[in-house]
Design a protein around this nucleic acid. Structure first.
Lengths: 113, 113
DNA sequence: TCCATATTTCAACGATAGTGGAAATAAACA
DNA sequence: TGTTTATTTCCACTATCGTTGAAATATGGA
């Protein structure tokens, strides 16, 4: 991953509304949520949410498909995975003994286990 | 983790210089790097770097200890782990079959394996 | 003590982000 | 076709961020 892509994704998530949107979509899984339902859930104006979704979308963190009058948004899990890997890449340069904490991450990411 | 802490950490990383600083410290591991050496490595002014380090530090993503005239900075792996977990928390509400991508994260985070 | 090195703090500037009102687009339905 | 619902685009305003010069603080050594 290139640095500017990572920055775009981190910037997209570094805002209370957008972070809440993303986490809501993570919990919704592949089913996704319509823009209107997201706006109602988080109590934000429709146009404000639209620009937030646009930022998340351009960062590659969410995808959208039209369903009748509504547009369904979904979290892009692979993009999230790429970002996480990038953040701890090449850690410790192979000295496993001084890098125990990272292995704890994998133990704690067990959402569907 | 509270939302505002996550936003602070994501904001801290959502800037090219600071992201580069953090990744440099991740690669350095527990040995850490002095502020001056970071500034030279990344070719940024000392006072600019100082404010960047301050932001990373307040976000809990780096720690510092004085060593003579220098101050050594280190990545805070546990804080990073907490953030990662927060981002994919409660994903899919337990429907493992529709949430394969998250399990791929753990496979790909294997820096010291 | 005096000086050099390492780092931080302060103040100010220009640039960018977040929000909301109003209008535009898109689809469904009578 | 005309109307309603869903969402987005455009625009302007305020607030916050990132950078830099200059000064201040802290440590080590002559």
């Amino acid at each position: 991953m290139e640095s500017n892509v990572a920055v775009a994704r981190l910037s997209a998530l570094a805002q209370p509304n957008r972070l809440a949107v993303f986490r809501l979509l993570v919990r919704a899984g592949n089913e996704g949520i319509s823009a209107g339902d997201i706006a109602r859930s988080l109590n934000v104006a429709a146009n404000t949410l639209s620009s937030q979704l646009n930022i998340l979308s351009h960062a590659g963190l969410v995808t959208s498909t039209r369903d009748g009058r509504s547009i369904i948004y979904r979290a892009a899990f692979h993009a999230m995975a790429d970002l996480m890997v990038y953040l701890v890449e090449d850690c410790c340069q192979g000295h496993a003994d001084i890098c125990v904490p990272i292995s704890e991450i994998t133990d704690r990411i067990a959402c569907c286990g």
